[in-house]
Every structure is written in structure tokens, then in C-alpha cells.
Design a protein around this nucleic acid. Structure first.
Ligand code: MN
Ligand code: MN
Ligand code: ZN
Ligand code: ZN
Lengths: 140, 140
DNA sequence: CAATAATTTTGACAAAGTCTAAAACTATAC
DNA sequence: GTATAGTTTTAGACTTTGTCAAAATTATTG
């Protein structure tokens, strides 16, 4: 990823301290929630409103600069790794989220058996399991 | 599926009118939301509290009698087709949800490239697209 | 620097679901 | 059948995640 200011200008978005900080927070904390990111931004620039965090995340997502993922039992998570159709591995215990390379290729990377007349544009895969830390905990 | 009363007794669940009605509603309306189901149950037995709908759906899900799916931008949906590891095809426009047979086999039906030490038990696949009705609408 | 357009903030609001304690019910044992 | 113990259901408050709308502030353009 190039520097956040360039990214914003390339997408015709006025550059603001809030946008820069959110973009940096997403880059430094992959798969963080809006709340996590607000926390990070506050440590960096002092203050930001909850609404602005959502505004910025929404506009960045709409422009395709970042990606939103929404696993069950979790608020939305964000990452700046876009355009490579990778998938995710989520811990049922603690929500820890890891990237998984797409097993098959470009999106949609899996072929639905019966498409029911739908025009499919994405195959989202979430692998569910238990991370090493949670496994250790449940064994003890 | 066998009859709801037998199912409940087999799982040591006291039989109540609410549970029977919710179970029947799930069977008759695959991929319905809690709200949809509450509506159905009210038509059948007259009244049920919102909390009871959630209580019943939770206990049935915990026992593995029904299954909960939670696609992005949608409240949870329920179905009684369990244990066959099938997947779903969801319309981005209207949320219409169709079953898709698993192309690969038993759960977890896909192999994560790097497991990150996780113990994976399920590969959840959601195919995203546009259903015929929504396609027609957006073309006009 | 001034004018304009866009963003940020504030505060109210909404949807989906959980928590609690009291009331109502079910199952079991006489 | 009744009484009892144990569950379930109910009602209402509450939480979390996110959106809406109007006013205040800031960025861009010339
Ligand atoms: Mn990722
Ligand atoms: Mn299904
Ligand atoms: Zn974990
Ligand atoms: Zn549709």
C-alpha cells in the first residue's frame, strides 16, 4: 500500500486528519472492528467521533480502498488487503481472524452446483475452528 | 424430519406449544428470520413473546435440531436441514436465500491452505449474487 | 483570503438480540 | 387426579452495532 494521502487523492476524497488516521489504523490492525479502530485513532490524533469512524469506513469501503468482512457473532471487521479474493479463518472461541489464501483462484473461486438463476459475483469462505490458545484453555 | 413432538422428547426437551409451533414454522419456512417465524407462530397459535421465539430458537440450535446462518446485512436465519453441510446462495438485492449442495463433500469440505494451528471444523461458503427478480428490476 | 463544497460532530434513533425476575406451565411422584 | 419441583414463558429494561439529520467545522479552488 502506498501512503494514505496519495490513496485518498487518487480517489478524489478530500484529505482529512480523520481519514488519514483511520486508514493508517486499518493498515496497522488488519481485521479490527470499528471500535478497535476508533480506539487506535484516538491514540494517534486525540479524538474522533464515533460517527466519523463509521463515515470514513463506509466511504473507504464504497471506494474499494478497504474491505469489510462480517463473520457471524462479530461486529464488522476491516482490512486494506483488497482485490486478491482471499478468505478467512475465524476462531469460535475468541474471534481471532487469520487470512487464508484462496484455494482455487480468482473470484468467484468456487462454482455453485445449482445457480438458481442467480448471477454470482463472489464466493465467500469462512473457515471456523479453534485457535491454539483457545484449544489450550479448553483442555485445562 | 419426524414429527416435532418426537424430536423434542428425543432431546429431553419438555414439550410446549411454543416449541412445537416454532419447530413447525422453521420446517415450513426455510431460511426465515426470528421475526418471520414469530409472525408464523402467531398465525398458528395466536400469541408468543419475542423472548420465547429467541429462547426456543437458541435451545433448538444448541441441540443441533436446527441450524442458524448469519449472512452479512441480514438478521440470523434458521433451517431444519442439518447435518448435510450444504451451503448458501444469497441475493445482494433482496436477501433471497437458496440452498446449494456442497460440491466437495462432508464438513469441513474445503482445505485451508495455511491452518495457522487452528483446528478447523467447518468451511462455511456463501455465494453472493443477484437473483433473477432483482436483475430484472435493475435492468429496467 | 474568500467562497463553496464537503466533512465532522452531536444527539437522537433503529434493529437485533440478551438479561432478569415473576408468573405460568410441564412433568413426575404420590 | 393432586401436589410438588423444576422449567419455561412473559414483560420490560437494557446492550450492541450501526444509521439519520442538522449544525458546526474544515478542505479545496481560484
Ligand atoms: Mn483478511
Ligand atoms: Mn439451507
Ligand atoms: Zn481463539
Ligand atoms: Zn433478489
Amino acid at each position: 500500500m502506498q501512503d494514505p494521502e496519495t490513496t485518498l487523492r487518487q480517489h478524489d476524497l478530500p484529505v482529512t486528519a480523520q481519514r488519514l488516521a483511520v486508514l493508517r489504523a486499518v493498515a496497522n490492525h488488519p481485521h479490527a472492528t470499528a471500535d478497535d479502530l476508533a480506539e487506535q485513532v484516538r491514540q494517534e490524533i486525540g479524538a474522533i467521533s464515533r460517527q466519523s469512524v463509521y463515515n470514513v469506513l463506509n466511504v473507504l469501503t464504497d471506494k474499494g480502498i478497504i474491505r469489510r468482512i462480517q463473520p457471524a457473532h462479530s461486529p464488522a471487521r476491516y482490512e486494506d488487503r483488497v482485490g486478491d479474493n482471499h478468505h478467512h479463518l475465524v476462531c469460535r472461541g475468541c474471534g481471532r481472524t487469520e487470512d487464508v489464501c484462496c484455494a482455487v483462484g480468482a473470484a468467484p473461486c468456487l462454482h455453485a452446483h445449482d445457480q438458481h438463476g442467480f448471477q454470482i459475483d463472489e464466493a465467500e469462505v469462512i473457515y471456523w475452528g479453534t485457535c491454539p490458545a483457545c484449544r489450550r484453555k479448553s483442555r485445562s
